[in-house]
Amino acid sequence: MPDSIEQAKRALRADLRERRQTISAHAREIAEDGVKEQLDALVESLGARSISCFLSTTTEPGTHAFVAAAVARGIRVLLPITREDGLLDWAVATPDADITEGLFGLPEPVGDVLGPIAVNDVDLLVIPAAAVDRRGMRLGWGRGYFDKTLGSMEKCPPVYAVIFDSEFVDDVPRDVHDQPVSGIVTPTRTVRIAASPA
């Protein structure tokens, strides 16, 4: 059975990846503005002073403008750094930080590296996703970094996945290690997902 789940995930990821490739540069700019507006409002509503966020790739809904504005407002933003062992290190975002290509070609900060437990102190986690379903189950890109991070946190704060509107779907394939999210942020809306029994 796990093989069929993995195959379903692979097929859905491939479809979503292909759809993201077709989004125009102009539409991406509009999406980044919308994501910034939605995340700003979410941070404000939660009173978050310390958050984690990811640096988006060119095909993801953009987070760079949000991160820069949050840092400028004095919010502590931790950015993930991928490790070979499947865990995430973290670095504090700064206004003038360099960005380099990490494992898998992902944009990552250059700076003082904090260990995996640094994220335990944040008020909000903002994470990437390929899709999220109505129950809050998240389909990631298959490397398991964020599932491991969420699964290892003793006291997990709210977790919001950033996706395009069309990626909020009825159902995603789910495996035992997959971790749900508290809600989604898209370029046009923020949806809080009520916790439901697994």
Rank of each mutant, 00 (worst) to 15 (best):
V35T: 07
S50Y: 10
S50T: 11
A14V: 10
Q21N: 13
A91E: 03
R28V: 08
T58E: 14
V77H: 00
T57W: 13
A27V: 14
L46Y: 08
L78H: 03
R13P: 03
R83H: 07
G86Q: 03
L78W: 01
L79W: 00
A14G: 13
F54H: 04
L39Q: 02
C53N: 06
V71E: 04
I75W: 04
C53R: 04
L78F: 05
R83P: 07
S56R: 07
D15V: 09
R19G: 09
T58Y: 13
R13Y: 11
P80D: 02
L12I: 01
V67I: 15
G62R: 03
Q21E: 13
T63Q: 02
L79Q: 00
G34V: 00
R76Y: 07
I75G: 03
R13C: 05
F54P: 02
T22W: 10
T82P: 14
I75T: 08
L78G: 00
D40I: 12
S24V: 01
R20S: 10
E44V: 10
D40Y: 12
T82E: 08
I75A: 03
S45N: 13
A70R: 06
L46G: 11
T82R: 07
V35E: 04
A48L: 00
G74W: 01
V77F: 00
G86W: 06
W90R: 00
R13D: 08
D40M: 14
T63E: 01
S56V: 09
R17M: 14
F66Y: 14
